[in-house]
Amino acid sequence: MSVQVNSMNRGAVRSDLLMAGFDDAVQDAQKVFRKVLKAMSEPGTILTADLTDKTPGALNKSSWEIALTLFDADTKIWLSPTLAGDDVVVSNLRFHCQCPMVSEPAEADFALALADELPELKTLNWGNSEYPDQSTTLIVQVEAITNQVQDSDEGWCLTGPGIETERGLSAKGLPYSFRLDLVNSRKRFPLGVDCVFCADDQLVALPRSTEIKPSDNEDGIRNTTQQEAN
């Protein structure tokens, strides 16, 4: 018997935990890909991904569908501790995507995390000046996402490519430190991390090209125009 070289994450997938993925793998993945593309090109625009009935473990619909669409044998995946410890999640991701799992966020092409288990932003791969595209894409499951930011102390005002003037966005449950790091990460553009926030069947993207300003007075950065945006 030949020696195995594909042994990145051996250990059995639990076949009793496997559930169906997309009903139509090709068409459904194309639909979700189109959503992610639109979300990335129009940052802050909330889209719905609702093609599956059941999701494995703690994954919500939109993050599960993004995984089915974007993860494959050539993408290294980092999962936040709760997800990584859940056989249902790991088995189904490995079965449907064949994605190798990594234990260091810096090695990951995609990091999939719960909002309260986010890795420090600096521990992810920000790409390099030759290949800024080789950075980690961070997918975060949050409680809720909304474009209504008036009464939120977690609101952002987004500007930049794909946004005509500005757009409000609030992703509930992100730690303060992460929000601060994300704002500061823009200084290193074109290096950085592209984010997708997933709440139930909704998703919204925040690529590194989008400028973020807190919509309240948090951190002393005052945004004066956000009120008109909504």
Binding site: M1, S2, Q4, N6, R10, G11, A12, V13, S15, L18, S91, R94, F95, Q98
Partner: peptide, 11 residues
């Protein structure tokens, strides 16, 4: 030709 499917773990 052999491969090792994730769900089986053997070639």
């Amino acid at each position: 030709v052999e491969l090792v499917p994730e769900e089986l773990g053997f070639p």
